[in-house]
Design a protein around this nucleic acid. Structure first.
Lengths: 111, 111
DNA sequence: ATCCCTTATCGCAAATATACGATTAATAAT
DNA sequence: ATTATTAATCGTATATTTGCGATAAGGGAT
């Protein structure tokens, strides 16, 4: 693509898209599910559970972290990741707002 | 990437990721908002509202359609697009299921 | 200090996504 | 039949993502 046009959309559209993008790979959905299914924050256990190399998992974790969906802290030689609750609710709110707009039109569908 | 590893994840993970991916570009969020804000199904009006060329918009519409989020029917020389209600609810349900799993762990956060 | 374990980062290759102009297809209007 | 209008598709260039191995970096343990 010659030029990146993403900047020409509204901040809300960009934010919602960025969060959706962070969840747009099955590996990252799987990581979120692993984090959701454990009482403790996981580090390298995720690598054992996924069919991916350690470096690849680390990269996916970084993307989730950059998007703000998870937070990570260094705990000695290992890293500890957790769900970032606020960001997750923010995505949910943004998505529900969109969904509510859609619902208004439900009766007027023509195709 | 040498090999596509997406197939090695569960169908649920793949489906949720695919829907998230369809919404992972601000232009496609904008298209959904346009469809939500009009009583009639829009065709080329979308092109006028977005800062993108006609062929690019058509490509984005195809991606939303392939993901099942919108449906389109040919109406004479123009095309008519609408929100696909069921698919949208499906994404919402999948996301809420994930969110509910997360909520269970809210009290046990360690970072 | 040295070794080991864990994780982040670098560098690279291959696959996908993004964007556009040009062309095609399909129908409406003249 | 010809022309105009609308939208899909093709071809292409560039950007980004995905994935891995190799290497570094940061602590523990001996």
């Amino acid at each position: 693509m010659a030029i990146n046009k993403k900047d020409e959309f509204s901040p809300q559209e960009q934010e919602l898209a960025a969060l959706a993008k962070a969840m747009s790979h099955p590996a990252r959905i799987a990581i979120l599910k692993v984090l959701a299914g454990k009482n403790e924050c996981i580090c390298g256990e995720i690598v054992d559970l996924l069919p991916l190399a350690q470096s690849t998992v680390s990269q996916h974790l970084k993307e989730l972290k950059d998007a703000g969906l998870i937070s990570g802290s260094i705990d000695g030689p290992r890293s500890c990741y957790c769900i970032n609750w606020e960001a997750f609710e923010a995505f949910n709110n943004g998505f529900n707002n969109l969904l509510n707009d859609l619902r208004k039109q439900k009766a007027n569908q023509c195709c």
